[in-house]
Design a protein around this nucleic acid. Structure first.
Lengths: 206, 206
DNA sequence: GTTGACAAGATTGTTGACAATCTTCGGGCT
DNA sequence: AGCCCGAAGATTGTCAACAATCTTGTCAAC
């Protein structure tokens, strides 16, 4: 595993706490690579928004607090709506079948009460939509935004009734894409993610 | 000036041609800094999408061709539309007066036939809107997207009648923001930038 | 004439040491 | 006691040298 991936994994998994200092010498030992590699990894992670870096003061794990999480989710919504629009115009028969397959998998997991796996399948659906959209720029931006939100990704699934509503929203997105209706797909994605933001705010303020 | 800024400036100003190799040793002499600094700058610029980097093969200036430019513009449109929405709900009296001042400056420059300065003022307006929106995440993303488009930024102003239509579109955006109407502001920004994309496509295919 | 291997040159990747900077700790002064 | 100052320690920034890799040019074999 590259030092960058190892560090990212350690941060997003929560093994490293927010605001914790990341001393290069320590990371050199922990990751088993030279200091140059560590520095390069830190520089990239800074660009991804996972660490903060002050000159001559080193790097620390960046803390994304609620206000910013909402911002990031808004930006992500705007970009995923764009992607959904593209997906609606480009999806072929096989793509649509694939999306429906993922949906039924989700239905199955929900019926079993496996909320965690359902949430993962959720991510798979979004990923597949991006692939269908074929929009490299949006894809790149969304993936960096998502990595900043990992800490919040499971926070909404315990909100009562959220899973079912989320499933219904995903159904509407897939329907719009299958119908080849860009406007509907964009709108469906937009409302879906705005509901996620709402749920996040609700879950957070408790 | 930091080596990173110097390099970025050299790339976006067009002093370095697309696909031109960026040999570290040469840059060391040109920029007057050590190789470490050069490498760090190249790494960051790669993340910004301004240079391409292959392992053991060095970096070269990245060429953004039309198809990708349209993609970038679409992503930017989605994000600026979001920002415009926020600006509409947050703009105060002073902000609105400022926007109108910029508009009248633009009108003045257009009447004088100074299209280049008018285009610059255009950028000022967008910048000010972002500031009013107070959306750091969108702002960050937009600024990196913009830096990838510098090569195209003046390409549309020579399209006959484009300046006047652009001015009218900006007027509608400012009106919507002044009226505190988020939906209208978002829509106005969206149509404005989609027209820019259209003009770009038109100017390109000649 | 073309192809393949091989050596020479050029360029990047990595390591270690040194310099610059920041932080912490202790002593002297008020 | 509280505060300023300076030295020591810790940490990052930079530099130069070396190793690894790629590219180019040459030459022999077919």
């Amino acid at each position: 595993m590259s030092p960058e991936d190892a560090l990212r994994e350690a941060i997003v998994s929560g093994r490293l706490l927010p605001n914790q200092r990341l001393v290069e010498a320590d990371l050199t030992r922990t990751l088993g690579v030279g200091r140059s590699a560590v520095r390069a990894a830190l520089a990239r992670l800074e660009h991804e928004g996972l660490v903060e870096h002050e000159r001559n003061r080193g790097a620390r794990v960046r803390l994304v607090e609620e206000r910013e999480a909402v911002e990031i989710l808004e930006a992500r919504a705007a970009l995923e709506a764009l992607a959904a629009r593209h997906a609606a115009t480009r999806a072929g028969e096989a793509d649509i079948a694939d999306l429906r397959r993922i949906l039924s998998e989700m239905r199955c997991l929900l019926d079993r009460g496996d909320l965690l796996s359902a949430s993962d399948q959720n991510a798979v659906l979004h990923e597949r939509l991006l692939e269908i959209a074929g929009h490299a720029t949006a894809g790149r931006l969304i993936s960096t935004l998502k990595s900043q939100l990992v800490r919040f990704q499971y926070r909404t699934i315990l909100v009562p009734g959220r899973s079912e509503r989320s499933f219904a929203e995903h159904g509407r997105i897939v329907d719009a894409v299958a119908a080849g209706d860009p406007d509907a797909a964009e709108a469906a994605m937009q409302t879906h993610l705005s509901h996620v933001a709402e749920a996040l705010r609700g879950a957070e303020s408790r």
